[in-house]
Design a binder for these strands. Structure first.
Length: 416
DNA sequence: TCTGGGGTCCTAGGACCC
DNA sequence: TCTGGGGTCCTAGGACCC
């Protein structure tokens, strides 16, 4: 079996272009939440030297000077476009693993090579408007590398099959940093052993790699040798944790504001739990000051609590979460971020007996259902809990967001 | 003034048990 | 004067991914 890795090109920028063709050929960037960092760049923006992950405020001048079109991230749009891309690919393959919002691994049979990849690419483009690249290899790691190679070499037209060439030549050109699963730390470690390229790692002594990098590193090295160690995972694994955290748009010092923000994030986590039919056994809460301002007093506490009975009811989650917040809150700091994570998740069905054992509980669940229903129909937080507050001065910045072209009736494109 | 968010896996080390 | 060893479970933190 061989793997293909299909990756949407500059995905968020491409999504913005689908409904705004004026952006074609124009440099585009998309910013992270809070309009913080650059997280997607069109080819034109890359050429102009906009670096990935750099803060927006440091780029403002370059944006202006070059007429770069800047967007806040619009996850409703990207999520929906992702579903369209994945749905299109499903029409062409039997087995597929959706790996991230803009990537999927496909299982290919012997007959599916370059020609198949080209057809897939053009179908996705035609049906969704999103350009993709396809890399084919005998392992997931090599498919990833093939994909990267396709992107780096425009003459390949976005498609490359590593199984049809002598791979060592290509591997010799790829730095360890650029291998899937090898980050900054690991590549620095490898460099100390004079392992600099993917070819070096492929040919390295396995025992040495195992020793230095553990099983993760060994797996990568074996995959480079064409030995598949990572299977295609068609079913998404059940979630082990759900989190919600956000930086503030303005500085926050008061407990009241932190409470409102945290309650809002906890309500989101509650919704996600109920959507996934999961219950949380533990909840943890954390606070952070701005670590980019080391001259200010720093404080980043966290704490957690266990529920006697796993729950997904927002009032209970908020009650416990806010208690935790009050425990760790100290006045006198400028807070930058707070967040919540629920862990030790269990399936709703596994504890349903006790849930419905009690009349009051039944009513609370019915109320929660009604609230969820209203919010789904009328928009998020149409009905909310008092602790979430109303003025939301702590809200993140999102000043350059495009419309939700595909998920809100009011935002539909009008053709005149 | 302004620096993202959500998630997984692995490992080391402590607590505890017999 | 002498103070085990082996195993499991849990947690915090590191590293990485997109």
């Amino acid at each position: 079996m061989r793997f293909a890795l299909v990756d949407c090109n500059n995905f968020y920028c491409s999504c913005e272009r689908v409904f705004n063709p004026g952006l074609m050929g124009v440099p585009v960037v998309v910013l992270s939440n809070n309009d913080g960092c650059v997280i997607a760049r069109s080819e034109e923006s890359k050429k102009l030297g906009v670096e990935m992950g750099t803060p927006a405020f440091k780029n403002e001048e370059m944006f202006k000077k070059n007429g770069i079109q800047v967007f806040s991230s619009n996850y409703a749009l990207y999520g929906d476009m992702s579903a369209r891309v994945m749905g299109t690919m499903r029409t062409m393959v039997e087995q597929m693993e959706v790996y991230s919002i803009d990537e999927a691994f496909l299982a290919l049979d012997a007959s599916q090579g370059i020609a198949f990849a080209r057809e897939l690419r053009s179908r996705v483009r035609q049906w969704t408007g999103i350009p993709v690249s396809v890399g084919i290899g005998p392992t997931k790691t090599l498919a990833k590398l093939a994909n990267r190679y396709a992107k780096k070499n425009p003459s390949l037209n976005g498609v490359f099959d590593l199984t049809t060439v002598e791979p060592d030549e290509i591997l010799a050109k790829i730095e360890c940093q650029d291998i899937w699963g090898v980050g900054r730390r690991t590549s620095a470690k490898l460099a100390r052993s004079k392992i600099l390229t993917a070819l070096d790692l492929k040919n390295a002594d396995m025992a040495l790699i195992r020793n230095a990098l553990g099983v993760v590193g060994e797996r990568i090295a074996r995959e480079l040798n064409g030995i598949s160690c990572m299977e295609l995972e068609e079913l998404p694994a059940s979630k082990k944790a759900i989190a919600s955290a956000r930086s503030f748009g303005h500085r926050v010092e008061s407990l009241v504001e932190l409470e409102e923000a945290l309650a809002t994030y906890i309500a989101r986590v509650g919704e996600k739990l109920r959507t996934g039919k999961l219950l949380a056994s533990r909840i943890s809460v954390f606070l952070e000051t701005n670590h980019f301002r080391p001259e200010l007093p720093q404080y980043h506490p966290g704490t957690q609590a266990t529920f006697l009975r796993p729950t997904n009811q927002t009032p209970e989650l908020i009650g416990t979460g806010l208690d935790l917040l009050r425990k760790i809150y100290r006045p006198g700091y400028q807070y930058k971020k707070t967040g919540v994570m629920v862990t030790d998740l269990v399936d709703e069905s596994s504890v349903q007996m006790s849930l419905f054992g009690n009349e009051g509980e039944k009513h609370r669940i019915a109320l929660q259902k009604a609230v969820d229903g209203l919010n789904k129909r009328l928009g998020r937080n149409a009905v909310s809990f008092g602790s979430m507050g109303l003025d939301e001065a702590w809200q993140m910045r999102q000043e350059r967001k495009s419309r939700c072209f595909t998920t809100r009736w009011d935002d539909l494109l009008v053709v005149s």
